[in-house]
């Protein structure tokens, strides 16, 4: 069965591109644009991997992961995406339970490699 990826990111331009990329790479994809949507989608389905943007219109992306962990349904791996690589943000992501912090803009080759590694 195809691995399921949840993309939590507020820009439809980015999620559209990722949806094509992941679907063509053989994954099943779902998308959420806000913290609230992320929690709702994440709780309604089991995901193998969550790609999590940190700045969302209604709060920090890390709140999605916290809520899913509290409900006992976190994805197998969560990869955080941030525009700025600073040690404090990185620490906060790892403390919240993210497996990795990816710095935007992401090259598709790198992104697919990271995902494959965490799904292996």
């Amino acid at each position: 069965m195809a691995a399921r990826i949840l993309i939590v990111e507020d820009s439809p331009l980015v999620t559209d591109a990722f949806r094509i990329l992941f679907t063509e790479s053989g994954y099943e994809v779902d998308v959420a644009a806000t913290v609230a949507e992320g929690i709702e989608r994440g709780a309604a389905n089991t995901f193998d991997l969550m790609l999590l943007d940190l700045s969302l219109p209604d709060g920090s992306g890390l709140e999605v992961l916290e809520a899913l962990r509290e409900r006992g349904v976190p994805p197998r791996a969560t990869l955080a995406m941030t525009g700025y690589d600073d040690p404090i943000t990185r620490r906060a992501c790892l403390d919240a339970g993210c497996a990795e912090v990816l710095v935007k803009p992401l090259r598709i080759g790198d992104l697919l490699r990271h995902i494959e590694r965490h799904l292996a």
């Binding site: 820009s11 331009l13 591109a17 094509i20 990329l21 063509e24 803009p105 992401l106 598709i108």
Partner: peptide
């Protein structure tokens, strides 16, 4: 400016890599 630009580059990479 960075967000739409990143989307443009991702689409171009998808095409370049022959995924479509």
């Amino acid at each position: 400016l960075r967000t739409p630009l990143a989307a443009i580059i991702t689409h171009a990479e998808i095409l370049r890599d022959g995924m479509l």
